[in-house]
Amino acid sequence: MPPTSPSLLAAARELAGSQHYPQGTLYMVATPIGNLADIGLRALHVLDLADTVACEDTRHTAALLQAYGLHKPLLALHEHNEAQAAQTVVQRLQAGGRVAYVSDAGTPGVSDPGARLCAAVAAAGLRCVPLPGASSVTALLSVAGLGGGDSRFVFAGFLPPKSTERRQAVQALAADPRTTVLLEAPHRIVALAADLAVLGERAVTVGRELTKQFEQVAQMPASALPAWFDADPNRQRGEFALILHPAPTRADDDTLDAATLKTLDRLLAELPVKTAVKVCADITGAPRNRLYDLALQRRAAPAAD
Protein backbone atom coordinates (compact mmCIF):
# COMPACT_ATOMS: atom_id res chain seq x y z
CA MET A 1 0.00 0.00 0.00
CA PRO A 2 1.39 3.47 -0.85
CA PRO A 3 2.36 5.88 1.93
CA THR A 4 -0.41 8.00 3.41
CA SER A 5 1.93 10.75 4.58
CA PRO A 6 1.64 14.27 3.10
CA SER A 7 4.88 13.67 1.18
CA LEU A 8 3.07 11.75 -1.56
CA LEU A 9 0.59 14.56 -2.18
CA ALA A 10 3.40 17.11 -1.95
CA ALA A 11 5.25 15.26 -4.72
CA ALA A 12 2.08 15.20 -6.79
CA ARG A 13 1.60 18.94 -6.38
CA GLU A 14 5.23 19.66 -7.25
CA LEU A 15 5.32 17.53 -10.39
CA ALA A 16 1.78 18.07 -11.67
CA GLY A 17 0.91 21.49 -10.32
CA SER A 18 2.49 23.50 -13.13
CA GLN A 19 -0.26 22.42 -15.53
CA HIS A 20 -3.52 24.39 -15.57
CA TYR A 21 -6.57 22.59 -14.15
CA PRO A 22 -9.54 24.83 -14.96
CA GLN A 23 -12.67 25.03 -12.88
CA GLY A 24 -15.96 23.93 -14.39
CA THR A 25 -14.25 20.88 -15.85
CA LEU A 26 -14.88 17.14 -15.60
CA TYR A 27 -11.72 15.10 -15.04
CA MET A 28 -11.89 11.43 -16.06
CA VAL A 29 -9.33 9.84 -13.75
CA ALA A 30 -7.92 6.35 -14.30
CA THR A 31 -7.30 4.47 -11.05
CA PRO A 32 -5.26 1.32 -10.27
CA ILE A 33 -6.61 -2.00 -11.53
CA GLY A 34 -5.32 -3.82 -8.46
CA ASN A 35 -2.01 -2.51 -7.18
CA LEU A 36 -2.51 0.78 -5.33
CA ALA A 37 1.05 1.82 -6.17
CA ASP A 38 0.00 2.24 -9.81
CA ILE A 39 -1.80 5.54 -9.16
CA GLY A 40 -0.48 8.45 -11.23
CA LEU A 41 0.86 11.54 -9.46
CA ARG A 42 -1.23 13.77 -11.74
CA ALA A 43 -4.30 11.71 -10.85
CA LEU A 44 -3.56 12.27 -7.17
CA HIS A 45 -3.15 15.99 -7.76
CA VAL A 46 -6.48 16.27 -9.55
CA LEU A 47 -8.28 14.17 -6.93
CA ASP A 48 -6.82 16.53 -4.33
CA LEU A 49 -8.04 19.58 -6.29
CA ALA A 50 -11.52 18.21 -7.01
CA ASP A 51 -14.52 19.70 -5.26
CA THR A 52 -16.45 16.47 -5.84
CA VAL A 53 -15.40 12.94 -6.75
CA ALA A 54 -18.12 11.15 -8.68
CA CYS A 55 -17.63 7.40 -8.58
CA GLU A 56 -19.01 4.01 -9.48
CA ASP A 57 -19.09 2.79 -5.85
CA THR A 58 -18.78 5.28 -2.99
CA ARG A 59 -17.56 2.66 -0.51
CA HIS A 60 -14.82 1.44 -2.82
CA THR A 61 -13.71 4.97 -3.71
CA ALA A 62 -13.76 6.16 -0.10
CA ALA A 63 -11.32 3.38 0.78
CA LEU A 64 -9.19 4.19 -2.27
CA LEU A 65 -8.94 7.88 -1.41
CA GLN A 66 -8.22 7.12 2.24
CA ALA A 67 -5.24 4.99 1.17
CA TYR A 68 -3.71 8.12 -0.35
CA GLY A 69 -4.66 10.43 2.53
CA LEU A 70 -7.53 12.09 0.67
CA HIS A 71 -11.05 12.86 1.89
CA LYS A 72 -13.55 14.25 -0.60
CA PRO A 73 -17.33 14.60 -1.03
CA LEU A 74 -18.49 11.63 -3.08
CA LEU A 75 -21.32 11.36 -5.62
CA ALA A 76 -22.52 7.93 -6.75
CA LEU A 77 -22.63 7.59 -10.54
CA HIS A 78 -22.97 4.06 -11.91
CA GLU A 79 -24.64 2.21 -14.78
CA HIS A 80 -28.08 2.32 -13.12
CA ASN A 81 -28.21 6.07 -12.43
CA GLU A 82 -25.69 7.51 -14.91
CA ALA A 83 -28.14 9.62 -16.92
CA GLN A 84 -29.67 11.24 -13.84
CA ALA A 85 -26.42 11.67 -11.91
CA ALA A 86 -24.75 13.15 -15.00
CA GLN A 87 -27.13 16.10 -14.78
CA THR A 88 -26.06 16.68 -11.18
CA VAL A 89 -22.44 16.71 -12.34
CA VAL A 90 -23.29 19.18 -15.13
CA GLN A 91 -24.93 21.50 -12.60
CA ARG A 92 -21.87 21.41 -10.36
CA LEU A 93 -19.60 22.13 -13.31
CA GLN A 94 -21.80 25.03 -14.43
CA ALA A 95 -21.42 26.43 -10.91
CA GLY A 96 -17.64 26.42 -11.42
CA GLY A 97 -16.72 23.27 -9.53
CA ARG A 98 -14.11 20.72 -10.50
CA VAL A 99 -15.50 17.18 -10.64
CA ALA A 100 -13.33 14.07 -10.94
CA TYR A 101 -14.92 10.82 -12.06
CA VAL A 102 -13.46 7.41 -11.21
CA SER A 103 -14.73 3.90 -11.81
CA ASP A 104 -13.87 1.02 -9.48
CA ALA A 105 -10.69 0.22 -11.41
CA GLY A 106 -8.98 1.34 -14.58
CA THR A 107 -10.16 3.96 -17.05
CA PRO A 108 -13.75 5.25 -16.80
CA GLY A 109 -15.87 4.91 -19.90
CA VAL A 110 -13.95 1.86 -21.18
CA SER A 111 -16.11 -1.16 -20.26
CA ASP A 112 -17.06 0.92 -17.19
CA PRO A 113 -19.58 3.73 -16.61
CA GLY A 114 -18.57 7.20 -17.73
CA ALA A 115 -19.34 7.41 -21.44
CA ARG A 116 -22.84 8.85 -20.97
CA LEU A 117 -21.46 11.24 -18.35
CA CYS A 118 -18.90 12.61 -20.83
CA ALA A 119 -21.58 12.91 -23.53
CA ALA A 120 -23.82 14.93 -21.19
CA VAL A 121 -20.95 17.21 -20.17
CA ALA A 122 -19.95 17.80 -23.80
CA ALA A 123 -23.58 18.46 -24.78
CA ALA A 124 -23.67 21.18 -22.11
CA GLY A 125 -20.66 22.84 -23.72
CA LEU A 126 -18.33 21.92 -20.88
CA ARG A 127 -14.89 20.36 -20.96
CA CYS A 128 -13.76 16.79 -20.20
CA VAL A 129 -10.08 16.15 -19.44
CA PRO A 130 -8.64 12.59 -19.45
CA LEU A 131 -6.01 11.47 -16.94
CA PRO A 132 -4.54 8.15 -18.15
CA GLY A 133 -3.38 5.34 -15.90
CA ALA A 134 -3.16 1.59 -15.44
CA SER A 135 -4.76 -0.57 -18.14
CA SER A 136 -5.12 -4.34 -18.31
CA VAL A 137 -5.35 -4.06 -22.10
CA THR A 138 -1.99 -2.39 -22.73
CA ALA A 139 -0.34 -4.27 -19.85
CA LEU A 140 -1.22 -7.64 -21.38
CA LEU A 141 -0.39 -6.54 -24.91
CA SER A 142 3.09 -5.59 -23.73
CA VAL A 143 3.90 -9.17 -22.66
CA ALA A 144 1.99 -11.12 -25.31
CA GLY A 145 4.97 -11.23 -27.68
CA LEU A 146 2.86 -10.52 -30.74
CA GLY A 147 5.79 -9.38 -32.89
CA GLY A 148 5.68 -9.00 -36.63
CA GLY A 149 5.79 -5.21 -36.51
CA ASP A 150 1.97 -4.98 -36.68
CA SER A 151 0.63 -3.18 -33.62
CA ARG A 152 -3.02 -3.09 -34.68
CA PHE A 153 -5.57 -4.63 -32.35
CA VAL A 154 -9.32 -4.65 -31.81
CA PHE A 155 -10.73 -4.07 -28.32
CA ALA A 156 -13.85 -6.22 -28.02
CA GLY A 157 -14.22 -5.93 -24.25
CA PHE A 158 -16.81 -8.20 -22.66
CA LEU A 159 -18.58 -10.58 -25.04
CA PRO A 160 -22.35 -11.08 -24.52
CA PRO A 161 -23.20 -13.01 -21.32
CA LYS A 162 -25.83 -15.21 -22.97
CA SER A 163 -24.38 -18.37 -24.48
CA THR A 164 -26.04 -18.15 -27.92
CA GLU A 165 -25.01 -14.54 -28.47
CA ARG A 166 -21.52 -15.21 -27.12
CA ARG A 167 -20.99 -18.10 -29.53
CA GLN A 168 -22.10 -15.90 -32.41
CA ALA A 169 -19.55 -13.30 -31.29
CA VAL A 170 -16.82 -15.96 -31.21
CA GLN A 171 -17.76 -17.01 -34.74
CA ALA A 172 -17.27 -13.40 -35.82
CA LEU A 173 -13.85 -13.39 -34.13
CA ALA A 174 -12.93 -16.54 -36.03
CA ALA A 175 -13.55 -14.70 -39.29
CA ASP A 176 -11.46 -11.71 -38.21
CA PRO A 177 -7.69 -12.30 -38.49
CA ARG A 178 -6.69 -9.32 -36.36
CA THR A 179 -5.43 -9.29 -32.76
CA THR A 180 -8.43 -8.98 -30.44
CA VAL A 181 -8.50 -8.07 -26.74
CA LEU A 182 -11.28 -9.46 -24.53
CA LEU A 183 -12.24 -8.92 -20.90
CA GLU A 184 -14.11 -11.40 -18.72
CA ALA A 185 -15.40 -11.82 -15.17
CA PRO A 186 -14.59 -14.89 -13.03
CA HIS A 187 -18.10 -16.34 -13.08
CA ARG A 188 -18.10 -16.48 -16.91
CA ILE A 189 -14.48 -17.34 -17.72
CA VAL A 190 -15.03 -21.12 -17.99
CA ALA A 191 -17.92 -20.66 -20.41
CA LEU A 192 -15.88 -18.22 -22.50
CA ALA A 193 -12.93 -20.64 -22.58
CA ALA A 194 -15.19 -23.42 -23.86
CA ASP A 195 -16.51 -21.20 -26.64
CA LEU A 196 -13.06 -19.94 -27.64
CA ALA A 197 -11.77 -23.52 -27.89
CA VAL A 198 -13.41 -23.82 -31.33
CA LEU A 199 -10.67 -21.49 -32.62
CA GLY A 200 -8.28 -24.46 -32.45
CA GLU A 201 -4.58 -23.63 -32.76
CA ARG A 202 -5.03 -19.87 -32.72
CA ALA A 203 -2.90 -18.55 -29.84
CA VAL A 204 -4.47 -16.92 -26.79
CA THR A 205 -2.67 -15.04 -24.02
CA VAL A 206 -4.53 -15.07 -20.71
CA GLY A 207 -3.92 -12.38 -18.11
CA ARG A 208 -5.38 -13.10 -14.67
CA GLU A 209 -5.39 -10.63 -11.77
CA LEU A 210 -3.01 -8.29 -13.61
CA THR A 211 -0.91 -6.07 -11.26
CA LYS A 212 -2.19 -7.96 -8.20
CA GLN A 213 -0.47 -10.38 -5.82
CA PHE A 214 -1.56 -13.51 -7.69
CA GLU A 215 -1.00 -12.14 -11.19
CA GLN A 216 -0.69 -14.82 -13.84
CA VAL A 217 0.04 -14.67 -17.57
CA ALA A 218 -0.12 -17.77 -19.75
CA GLN A 219 -0.19 -18.43 -23.49
CA MET A 220 -1.64 -21.46 -25.25
CA PRO A 221 -3.71 -22.58 -28.25
CA ALA A 222 -7.38 -21.71 -27.90
CA SER A 223 -8.22 -25.42 -27.89
CA ALA A 224 -6.23 -25.86 -24.65
CA LEU A 225 -8.09 -23.17 -22.68
CA PRO A 226 -10.78 -25.39 -21.05
CA ALA A 227 -8.23 -27.94 -19.79
CA TRP A 228 -5.97 -25.15 -18.47
CA PHE A 229 -8.76 -23.64 -16.39
CA ASP A 230 -9.98 -27.06 -15.19
CA ALA A 231 -6.48 -28.10 -14.06
CA ASP A 232 -6.47 -25.63 -11.16
CA PRO A 233 -9.63 -24.01 -9.71
CA ASN A 234 -7.51 -21.02 -8.62
CA ARG A 235 -7.06 -20.16 -12.29
CA GLN A 236 -10.80 -19.38 -12.45
CA ARG A 237 -10.53 -16.64 -9.81
CA GLY A 238 -10.03 -12.95 -10.40
CA GLU A 239 -10.52 -10.58 -13.30
CA PHE A 240 -9.36 -11.56 -16.77
CA ALA A 241 -7.99 -9.97 -19.91
CA LEU A 242 -7.38 -12.21 -22.93
CA ILE A 243 -5.58 -11.58 -26.20
CA LEU A 244 -6.65 -13.54 -29.23
CA HIS A 245 -3.54 -13.50 -31.41
CA PRO A 246 -3.76 -12.86 -35.17
CA ALA A 247 -4.97 -15.77 -37.22
CA PRO A 248 -1.96 -17.50 -38.79
CA THR A 249 -1.60 -17.05 -42.51
CA ARG A 250 -1.69 -20.38 -44.32
CA ALA A 251 1.08 -21.03 -46.79
CA ASP A 252 -1.37 -21.24 -49.67
CA ASP A 253 -2.91 -17.89 -48.65
CA ASP A 254 0.35 -15.97 -48.60
CA THR A 255 0.56 -14.84 -52.20
CA LEU A 256 -2.29 -13.44 -54.24
CA ASP A 257 -1.86 -12.83 -57.93
CA ALA A 258 -1.83 -9.36 -59.49
CA ALA A 259 -5.29 -9.79 -61.01
CA THR A 260 -6.82 -10.55 -57.60
CA LEU A 261 -5.12 -7.53 -56.02
CA LYS A 262 -6.31 -5.30 -58.85
CA THR A 263 -9.87 -6.56 -58.39
CA LEU A 264 -9.67 -5.93 -54.66
CA ASP A 265 -8.37 -2.38 -55.15
CA ARG A 266 -11.13 -1.54 -57.62
CA LEU A 267 -13.80 -2.85 -55.25
CA LEU A 268 -12.31 -1.00 -52.28
CA ALA A 269 -12.57 2.23 -54.24
CA GLU A 270 -16.34 1.84 -54.44
CA LEU A 271 -17.45 -0.37 -51.54
CA PRO A 272 -17.03 -0.78 -47.76
CA VAL A 273 -14.25 -3.18 -46.74
CA LYS A 274 -16.45 -6.15 -45.79
CA THR A 275 -18.53 -5.89 -48.96
CA ALA A 276 -15.45 -5.49 -51.16
CA VAL A 277 -13.83 -8.55 -49.58
CA LYS A 278 -16.95 -10.68 -50.01
CA VAL A 279 -17.37 -9.72 -53.67
CA CYS A 280 -13.66 -10.21 -54.38
CA ALA A 281 -13.70 -13.66 -52.77
CA ASP A 282 -16.76 -14.62 -54.82
CA ILE A 283 -15.13 -13.41 -58.06
CA THR A 284 -11.60 -14.72 -57.58
CA GLY A 285 -11.97 -17.62 -55.14
CA ALA A 286 -9.21 -16.13 -52.95
CA PRO A 287 -9.40 -16.82 -49.17
CA ARG A 288 -11.66 -14.28 -47.50
CA ASN A 289 -9.51 -13.93 -44.35
CA ARG A 290 -6.44 -13.13 -46.43
CA LEU A 291 -8.38 -10.63 -48.54
CA TYR A 292 -9.76 -8.95 -45.43
CA ASP A 293 -6.31 -8.52 -43.92
CA LEU A 294 -4.97 -7.10 -47.18
CA ALA A 295 -7.98 -4.80 -47.55
CA LEU A 296 -7.32 -3.26 -44.14
CA GLN A 297 -3.67 -2.71 -45.05
CA ARG A 298 -4.55 -1.15 -48.40
CA ARG A 299 -7.20 1.14 -46.91
CA ALA A 300 -4.58 2.40 -44.43
CA ALA A 301 -2.01 2.89 -47.22
CA PRO A 302 -3.69 2.88 -50.66
CA ALA A 303 -1.87 1.08 -53.41
CA ALA A 304 -0.18 3.12 -56.13
CA ASP A 305 -1.93 3.41 -59.49
Rank of each mutant, 00 (worst) to 15 (best):
Leu44Tyr: 07
Gly285Ser: 13
Glu165Pro: 00
Val121Trp: 02
Ser163Thr: 14
Ala301Met: 01
Gly147Asp: 14
Leu75Pro: 08
His71Ile: 05
Leu264Glu: 11
Ala16Gly: 06
Val206Ser: 01
Leu196Tyr: 09
Ala83Gly: 01
Asp265Leu: 03
Tyr68Ala: 00
Arg266Cys: 05
Ala203His: 05
Ser18Lys: 06
Gly109Thr: 05
Ser135Leu: 07
Ser151Leu: 10
Ala54Trp: 12
His245Gly: 05
Pro2Ala: 08
Asp257Gln: 08
Gln171Asn: 10
Glu79Met: 10
His78Met: 08
Ala156Glu: 15
Thr164His: 08
Val181Glu: 14
Thr263His: 08
Asp38Val: 08
Gln66Gly: 13
Glu82Met: 13
Gln94Ser: 13
Ser135Arg: 13
Phe214Thr: 00
His71Arg: 12
Ala169Phe: 09
Ala37Met: 04
Glu270Leu: 12
Glu79His: 07
Asp282Ser: 09
Thr61Asp: 13
His20Ala: 15
Glu82Tyr: 12
Gln171Glu: 13
Asp252Gln: 13
Ala241Gly: 07
Pro302Met: 09
Tyr68Met: 02
Thr164Arg: 13
Ala115Asp: 11
Arg250Thr: 00
Leu268Pro: 06
Leu70Pro: 14
Thr205His: 02
His187Ile: 02
Ala197Gly: 07
Gly200Ser: 08
Thr179Arg: 11
Arg178Leu: 09
Val273Lys: 03
Ala259Ser: 10
Leu264His: 07
Pro221Ile: 08
Ser135Trp: 07
Asp150Trp: 10
Arg288Asp: 05
Ser5Ala: 12
Gln236Leu: 00
Gln236Ile: 00
Tyr292Val: 03
Leu117Tyr: 05
Thr61Cys: 06
Val102Gly: 11
Gln219Asn: 03
Leu159Lys: 02
Pro130Val: 11
Val121Tyr: 05
Glu14Trp: 09
Ser163Asp: 04
Phe240Pro: 00
Arg237Met: 01
Asp51Val: 06
Leu196Glu: 08
Arg59Lys: 14
Ala231Gln: 13
Asp57His: 11
Arg235Ile: 00
Val277Thr: 12
Ile33Met: 10
Ala67Arg: 15
Ala222Gly: 04
Arg92Ile: 04
Leu26Tyr: 03
Asp48Arg: 12
Leu146Val: 15
Thr107Ile: 15
His80Thr: 11
Ile283Arg: 13
Ala286Arg: 07
Gln168Glu: 14
Ala67Trp: 04
Val154Ile: 12
Thr58Ile: 14
Leu140Val: 09
Pro3Trp: 04
Arg42Ser: 06
Ser111His: 10
Ala251Arg: 11
His45Glu: 06
Val121Cys: 06
Thr263Val: 10
Ala122Ile: 14
Asn81Thr: 02
Leu183Asp: 01
Gln219Trp: 02
Ser142Gly: 12
Leu9Thr: 15
Ala303Cys: 03
